[in-house]
Amino acid sequence: MPFLSLLLNILWVVTGGIWMAAGWLFAAILMVITIVGIPWARSAFTIAWYTLLPFGQTAVRRDEFRGREDIGTGLLGTLGNILWFVLAGWWLALGHLVAAVGLAITIIGLPFAWAHLKLALLALWPVGTEIVTVDEAESRRRLLGRGAY
């Protein structure tokens, strides 16, 4: 991990990022307990890790990144996102929005507020996305000759 990403991730954890990661972890555990939510649990665990250390990583659409559709990027993925929104997405997004507002009050908190806003959008519609390093996303973008994700 580059030094700047490491520094930003440390500051992120100290300024409250750990609490939203705990929220994602709690959502993942609830999904596992309900049995019905198991398909979303793995994604929630992955996004919990991303929420803990967001700098140096990014969320990309899986069909655009991989170059092919799969079960999570089609109609079933849309239905999964709707169920996710009802079960856990709205309150995770709300938590990220509250954190973003609190951090945006200070100038030094603006990059962290922006990260929370990106995570709030991810919380609303996570099925069909993949968490990759920024370097992987950039090299894949160049390989496919597309604009930024």
Rank of each mutant, 00 (worst) to 15 (best):
A59H: 02
L75N: 06
N81E: 06
T106Q: 10
L87Y: 09
G67N: 12
F85T: 08
R68S: 05
L94C: 12
F65I: 04
L97G: 10
G72W: 00
R61N: 12
T73F: 01
E64D: 14
L103C: 10
F85W: 13
G89P: 06
I105G: 09
L87Q: 07
V98M: 11
A104N: 11
D63K: 04
T73M: 06
W84D: 00
G72C: 02
L92A: 07
T106D: 07
L97F: 14
A100W: 12
L76M: 14
I107C: 12
L92Q: 05
R61Q: 13
G95S: 14
H96F: 03
T58M: 15
V60M: 08
W84L: 02
V101Y: 10
G95W: 13
E64F: 07
A100M: 13
A100H: 08
G102D: 08
T73P: 02
W90S: 12
G95L: 13
F85G: 07
I71R: 14
V98N: 02
L83R: 04
L76E: 02
A100R: 03
I71E: 15
G72S: 13
L79P: 03
L87F: 15
G80K: 04
G80A: 11
L94K: 05
V101K: 07
I107S: 07
H96L: 03
G77F: 00
R62E: 01
I71M: 11
G74I: 02
H96A: 03
I82W: 08
E64W: 11
L79N: 02
H96C: 11
V101F: 14
V86D: 02
G74R: 05
G74Y: 05
G89N: 08
L79T: 05
T78Y: 09
V60D: 01
L75H: 04
L75W: 14
L97C: 14
A93N: 03
A99Y: 04
L103N: 09
E64Y: 05
G74A: 05
L75C: 04
V86G: 03
L103V: 10
L103F: 10
T78D: 10
G72M: 02
F85L: 15
A59N: 06
G102C: 14
I105C: 11
T73L: 05
A100P: 04
V98L: 15
G89V: 02
N81Y: 07
V101I: 15
L97H: 11
G77M: 01
T78P: 00
L97K: 10
A104P: 08
W84Q: 00
I82G: 06
D63Y: 02
V98W: 11
L92C: 07
E64M: 14
W90F: 15
G67P: 11
L92W: 02
G89T: 01
D63H: 12
T58H: 06
L87G: 03
N81A: 07
D70R: 05
T58R: 10
E64I: 15
R68P: 00
A88R: 02
L94H: 07
L103E: 09
G67D: 09
W90C: 10
I107L: 15
W91P: 12
D63T: 03
L92F: 09
I105Q: 06
V101R: 10
L83P: 01
T73Y: 01
L76S: 04
A93M: 13
L87T: 13
R68F: 02
W84E: 00
T106V: 13
I105T: 11
